[in-house]
Design a protein around this nucleic acid. Structure first.
Lengths: 254, 254
DNA sequence: CTTCAATCGGGTACGCTGTACCCAGTAATA
DNA sequence: TATTACTGGGTACAGCGTACCCGATTGAAG
């Protein structure tokens, strides 16, 4: 029942932690900290992968073998912790392709596929209610990475931003419909089958009532047999089809 | 902190309530119920509009001037209640336009605009984590309504479904980025200003560090001056641009 | 008319959550 | 060595959804 939010915590606290200095802290009195902010964030991500978005702070503490309140020494609260988790997952791995070697369309397709896979690996990301985009160092790096796809064109800056956010929102919107699941270990297909099985008799009766004439025309079974990835690709592909003439028109001479 | 989920409650209970009969119940012993399911759902929507998605069951009870547990006589739990609330908001008002009188593009644009406005009126809808689409009578009516836009074309059934869900997911995805707010009475612009004000110094320092070369190239202020509605329209318009040639190719002769 | 049984509203209580607060122990500094 | 800042962690509290129970109410059966 409980699902968290982000971008809602005290922005100053989140930003301080996101952009915290990694340099050597000048020594201070008191015992050495047993943990680090990074270890807390990584443990929280592991727990969220396992328990879903409604993971508890006590579970994160248990993952690190410390008392329940100890993690509050490193993170001011759950919302700020989630801000850090989200930013961390925007980090580009060493396997990030070099977008300069592909054309704009291939680049944006790869970004969409990569984002889709990230949601598949961490479906709890989809349940986070992100109020404002949390721009940490890793998120900025990801955004900077995407912008490389528009190299060699003169599309206005504002339209570049519009196009990038459009692709991201298309992927996120579709992923939310298809990738959210009850618990981390549950296969999406299982829930989908159960759900359709439960709904089928009601839907049949509704269609037979003649109240929904257009839906009734959909006789073929396969009309509804759509995978999430398929839906995402269709939306992204049509969007890129629509973007193509503008990209061609703005191709830089030379 | 608490945000609810839907499509997660017992499907049978939700479906029973969604498709409940409106006919006269044959009289049974016991006192007459003070409320009805519909009154509970409507009160809950009012409360959610006021308090946001983390509204409490006790608030709904208070809205109806009954004890905290009374609403559980009408609804098995909060998740099922949310299922009913979501379906109810899919109901088409009497001001619903007649899609037959517009071409496919105008029709889909109106659907997108209408959905966008619904999210503006009830932003808590965006925070609901809908596991599986809850197909109640009102939702089905809305879906049936959208399908009218594809009249007069021979687009395959499956592609019609792909296109409709794409438009819906584009709107929802964009709305989630721009329309989620902390509390119902808060103006989105206020939060946005505060957020940017807090982030600005960090972003400036980050860009000056030279680590984000592509972002640094965005010198114009207006490149970031994007409204939610603008972003939604850009994404939908480009998608419809991409869909257009397929619609033209499938136009039915006659 | 009386009796029965089902259903009503609503109070109490439980387990869970995030986290405020407090305290004893530790380690660098004066 | 005394001071002081900081540590891990236990206790406790308010809020949540809701299981459970009880007395009151009302239609149906004898």
């Amino acid at each position: 029942m409980a699902t968290p939010q982000t971008g809602a915590g005290d922005p100053k606290r989140s930003l301080e932690l996101l952009w915290r200095e990694f340099g050597p802290q000048h020594s201070k009195p008191g015992p050495k900290p047993k943990l680090t902010v990074d270890r807390v964030v990584e443990a929280a991500i592991r727990v969220a992968d396992r328990e879903g978005s409604c993971f508890g702070m006590r579970s994160v503490a248990a993952e690190l073998d410390v008392g329940a309140m100890t993690i509050y020494r490193y993170v001011p609260g759950k919302r700020e912790l989630i801000d850090l988790m989200v930013d961390r997952l925007s980090k580009l791995g060493p396997d990030a392709p070099d977008l300069d070697r592909f054309d704009w369309r291939e680049g944006l397709e790869m970004v969409a596929e990569g984002t889709w896979q990230a949601y598949g690996d961490h479906p709890w990301l989809l349940e986070i209610n992100q109020r404002r985009p949390v721009l940490g160092p890793d998120s900025l790096e990801g955004y900077d990475f995407v912008l490389a796809a528009f190299e060699g064109h003169d599309l206005p800056d504002k339209e570049i931003n519009l196009a990038v956010t459009a692709v991201m929102n298309i992927v996120t919107g579709t992923a939310r419909q298809y990738l959210i699941r009850d618990s981390a270990d549950e296969e999406p297909a299982t829930a989908e089958d159960e759900w359709w099985h439960a709904q089928a008799p009601y839907l049949e009766r509704a269609v037979e009532s003649g109240r929904y004439k257009n839906i009734a025309r959909f006789t073929s079974e396969e009309a509804w047999d759509i995978t999430g990835h398929e839906a995402m690709r269709y939306a992204v592909d049509r969007f890129l089809d629509g973007l193509a003439p503008r990209m061609e028109a703005s191709r830089r001479a030379g």
